[in-house]
Each structure stands twice: as C-alpha cells, then as structure tokens.
C-alpha cells in the first residue's frame, strides 16, 4: 500500500470506524484513541494489507481494540446519551414533546444495545448504523454470511422485546 492509498483510505473510512467505535464503547475520547491506534497499525502493516480489502481489516482491528478496552474496564460503563448527537437528531419541525420522546427512546435503545451479546451488537451497529452490507460484515468479522443474518435477526428481536414496553406505554 502506497502513501497516497493510505491517505485515501483514512479519508474514506475514518467516520465509519469512529462511528463504530463510538457506538461500541459509548465514549468519544476512547473511540478517537482507538481509531488513531487502528490507523497506526495499518501504517505499520501497509506492506501486508491490500488496499482493496483494507476496510474489512480496519473493522476487524477496530473491533479487537474496542474489546480490549471493554475488558480493561473494571465496571461496565454507564451509558449516557450524547447531548451533541441528540441535538443533531432533533429537527425544527418536531415539537419539544416529540423530541423528548425520541431522545428517551434513543437512550433506551442504546441502553438495550449494551445488553446484547458482543457479536450481535457489532453486527447490529455495522448493519443498522454504519450501513454495511451483509457481505462486508461477513468479511470484516470473519463469519459466514448465514451466521451474520442469524445474529442480526437475534439482535433485532432482542432489542424489540426490550423496547416493546416503551411503545406500549406511549400508546396508552
């Protein structure tokens, strides 16, 4: 991989890697450190990593570094709603009540995701939030395509069951 390919790859992938790490770790500072670490590892291994298949490699290393950080945490982090993100999410057309309801649901959703098994959580983030295809996820996590689909189904079902009571209470 040449310098220009490296620079292009960093430009194309930094938001996706950062987004994945932020959702995985629920911490922006740690996510930033992880992404920098990932790119330095890519630079050190540039003679071994082909530019074409680098995205899978990057996601795989990001996931491993996130897992390392989670293991190092002695206690589970308390998930807080990112105020910046909620601010971005709100639109001028929605009422304050709608915004509050959306924020609460989003916070509960993120909280529910914290309780997913690690692989289901990774797959839900990569598919629903990062927008990767089944095949890209399969390559990145080194899992068969059918396993990716099964884990995604289980992850979605788990979230739905966790959040059904919220929808129920809103309907009342």
């Amino acid at each position: 991989m040449k310098v220009r390919e490296f620079e292009r790859l960093v430009g194309e992938s930094s938001d996706r890697l950062f987004g994945y790490a932020v959702h995985f770790l629920a911490n922006r500072e740690e996510a930033q450190d992880v992404v920098q670490d990932v790119y330095m590892r890519l630079w050190d291994n540039r003679s071994l990593v082909q530019a074409d298949g680098a995205m899978g490699w990057l996601i795989s290393v990001t996931r491993n570094l996130c897992l390392d950080r989670l293991r190092r945490r002695k206690v589970r982090s308390i998930v807080t709603v990112d105020s910046d993100r909620v601010g971005d999410h709100a639109t001028s057309q929605s009422s304050p009540e709608d915004d509050a309801s959306a924020s609460v649901f989003e916070a509960l959703l993120i909280d529910a995701m914290e309780n997913l098994p690690e692989q289901q959580k990774s797959i839900v983030i990569l598919r629903e939030m990062i927008g990767m295809s089944y095949q890209e996820i399969s390559d990145a996590l080194d899992l068969p395509l059918t396993t990716v689909k099964v884990y995604l189904h289980r992850g979605r079902r788990h979230l739905r069951r966790q959040l059904a009571t919220v929808i129920d209470s809103e309907a009342v």
């Binding site: 922006r28 930033q32 992404v35 999410h89 629903e128 990062i130």
Partner: peptide, 15 residues
C-alpha cells in the same frame, strides 16, 4: 421504530 431511530442517528464524524 427501532429501524427508524437507528437510521436517523447521524454517524458521528471523526474529529
């Protein structure tokens, strides 16, 4: 609702 919320959360930009 879960799909809508997830799809609407903007991807955080890497600083």
């Amino acid at each position: 609702r879960i799909r809508e919320v997830m799809a609407s959360v903007p991807l955080p930009q890497c600083p």
